[in-house]
Lab assay of single mutants.
Amino acid sequence: STVKVRLGHLEVTLHNVSEEDVRELRELWKNGADEEDLRRWLEEWKK
């Protein structure tokens, strides 16, 4: 499914993403990950 995730002022649209992935991303964000960390996660996730 396609999910729009809003993290601060960063809005990311993920395609074919699982609930688990979204949860993981939100956890990262809650734990103080900055945009760099999130971008890195997204790069990994896209592979």
Rank of each mutant, 00 (worst) to 15 (best):
L38C: 02
V17L: 12
L10M: 12
V17R: 01
V22I: 15
W45Q: 08
E24R: 14
K47L: 06
E43I: 05
W45C: 04
H15N: 08
E44S: 11
V3E: 02
E27L: 05
H9N: 15
L38G: 00
E43L: 04
E19S: 10
K30S: 13
H9G: 14
R26W: 14
R26Q: 14
A33W: 08
R40L: 11
D37N: 07
H15V: 09
D34V: 10
V22Y: 14
E35N: 06
E27D: 12
E20Q: 14
H15C: 09
G32W: 02
R23N: 15
N16I: 02
K4D: 03
K46I: 15
H9D: 14
W41M: 02
H9M: 12
K46M: 15
L10E: 13
G8C: 02
V22F: 14
D34F: 07
V3Q: 04
E24Y: 12
E36Y: 05
S18G: 06
K30I: 15
E20A: 12
E19N: 08
E19I: 10
L25K: 00
H9F: 10
V5C: 02
L38H: 00
V5N: 00
K30D: 15
D21S: 12
E20P: 08
L7A: 04
E36A: 12
E35K: 05
E11G: 03
G8T: 04
V12Q: 02
H15Y: 09
V17I: 11
E20V: 09
V5E: 01
S18N: 09
G8H: 05
R39T: 08
V12T: 04
R40P: 00
D37R: 10
V22A: 11
E11D: 09
E20K: 13
S1K: 13
V3N: 02
H9E: 14
E24Q: 15
L14K: 00
H9K: 13
K46V: 14
K4T: 15
D21A: 15
E43S: 05
S18K: 09
L28V: 03
E27I: 03
T13A: 04
E11A: 06
W41A: 02
V3A: 03
L38E: 00
L38A: 02
E11Q: 08
E19G: 05
D21R: 09
V12L: 11
A33T: 05
N16S: 06
E11M: 10
K30T: 12
T2G: 04
L10G: 07
V3W: 01
L25E: 00
L7S: 02
D34M: 09
E35V: 11
L10W: 15
K47S: 11
G32Y: 05
E44K: 14
R23I: 10
R39L: 14
E43V: 04
T13P: 01
D34T: 14
R40I: 09
V17S: 02
H9S: 14
H15E: 08
N16D: 08
E44T: 06
V3H: 03
L38Q: 01
E20Y: 04
R39G: 05
H15K: 07
R23L: 14
R40G: 06
E24C: 09
E44I: 07
H15M: 08
E36P: 05
E24M: 13
T2P: 05
D34A: 10
E11V: 10
W45A: 07
E19W: 10
W29Y: 15
K46E: 12
